[in-house]
């Protein structure tokens, strides 16, 4: 906690960048617990379509979210080449299915540019925290807590 806080206030902050479809996103590395390969998930009844199901993470039950579908893109068709980012969101641990992890970035806060208002959907704006321009690529910084908000999951 103190480490994360320090990262935010001083100049450095580490982000993990990954590819979903043809876009790049990143999240704070502090919330990522591990990265593992895709294993088939057990489907959950009455779950939202972006909820791929649950897998066994060393004895614990881990729900897997198709980040592509969650972000409003076309649903992923998971293959062995897909990657699950195991992330801590508040007190829970969730798995995010992404196409590949591309990079670990160390950036300063001033590198984060405000989200361009071309993003029309209220929903998409809610989890985009800003964009980064790294070596000519556009990387969107997303807030995990809004990707996986408590209330919505309880309703589901």
């Amino acid at each position: 906690m103190t480490y994360a806080a320090k990262n935010l206030t001083t100049d450095g902050r580490e982000l993990i960048a990954f590819r979903v479809g043809d876009q790049e996103f990143c999240v704070n590395v502090m919330s990522v617990r591990e990265i593992r390969g895709w294993t088939p998930a057990t489907a959950m009844p009455h779950a939202p379509s972006y909820m791929l199901g649950i897998i066994n993470l060393r004895g614990a039950v881990l729900p897997i979210i198709d980040l592509s579908a969650r972000l409003g893109m076309k649903p992923a068709e998971p293959t062995v080449r897909h990657v699950i980012i195991v992330a801590q969101v508040k007190s829970q641990v969730v798995g995010l299915l992404v196409d590949a992890v591309s990079d670990i970035l160390t950036i300063t806060d001033d590198k984060i540019q405000p989200t361009p208002d071309v993003i029309s959907s209220e929903f998409e704006r809610s989890f985009a925290r800003g964009v980064l321009a790294i070596e000519g690529r556009l990387i969107c910084l997303i807030e995990l807590e809004s990707v996986f908000p408590q209330e919505e999951r309880e309703a589901a």
Binding site: H46, V61, V93
Partner: peptide, 12 residues
Amino acid sequence: KSLEANYTHVPG
């Protein structure tokens, strides 16, 4: 194993 720990209660 609890489902609620990382997910949520699922009816049924």
